[in-house]
Amino acid sequence: MHLPAHEFVKPATLAEGLSLLQSAAGEIKPVAGGTDVIYNMRGRLFQPDVLLSVRELPELQGVRSAAGGRMRLGAGSRLTDLERSPELAAYPMLVRALRSVASRHVRNMATLGGNLCLDTRCWYTNQTAEWRQAKGPCLKNGVNVCHAIQSSEVCVALNASDIAPALIAHGARVTLACADGERELLLADFYTDDGVAHTLRRADELMVAVTLPPPPADAVFVKETARKGNDFSYGVIAAAGEVAGELVTGLTLVMGSLTTRPVSLVEPVRLIATQGLTDTAIAAAAAATREELGALTNLYTPAAYKSTLARALVTEALQRLRGAAA
């Protein structure tokens, strides 16, 4: 099936691209690798008037050191190039997360910015157009109905990025540019609880870079999925901090793929920070996780499985973190 009708434009510079984003009449969608945007256009989930190709914008490429031991990753960098980048060797947990995404084929095309802006996914919407037609539109198509959780007033589609939790655990910041200038915000603050407007990126903005603080002493990434290759995650967790024996400082615990936005866990982190990585504290942290995730009833697995999985991921991540320091 052909893609929906649209105009394809490919600016030569970032400035030209941003000006096109600002002046666009109708819906304009940036596309880089195309593995999410083109896929969703095939399913008629996206029907933009204009596709703005940002894949080769020179300003979006490459990894380079920045002031204060930080690292700046161009949002247009391909996942394959980031995985193999010598500059990122100091961030092995991030490299693990990058390598866990989809398949080599997809990572040869997909970009960092594209992954962080991946559309949210839902068992209802991510079907063929004909399938959706049978039950009618939902919040994603401008109607005030949610077929996944019928009592919900907001879209509860899930964030699908494996890289976002890893980057959030590292304390990464994102740079968004528009024709009038740039702004920077914590990636942790970039996502919302609304599966439709699921990021703070405005339509006239483009994600241009991700900035990483110096690498943490210890970090782990755990992904649970049906098969190793090509599947979306059932759930992922990223943890970072500095571990000395059972003591851990600067701990971050971030869960992805279970909810509309990646969730930075609060109470489990507090428990471990105050009690250390003991078996008792790890069990308490795992038990405190479920409450911070909200409703869990979308995609792939039943709610009870997701609750169990969330506990298991926290336990696994904390046990591995303890092992990493041994």
Partner: peptide, 26 residues
């Protein structure tokens, strides 16, 4: 949809490329 890889060709660097998800004009 980029899942099966049957449309794979090689890009200029000789890497696997999914031709079904690549807009021709790109």
């Amino acid at each position: 949809t980029g899942t099966c890889g049957v449309c794979t060709i090689n890009n200029e660097q000789g890497e696997a490329l999914l031709s079904c998800l690549t807009p021709a004009l790109e």
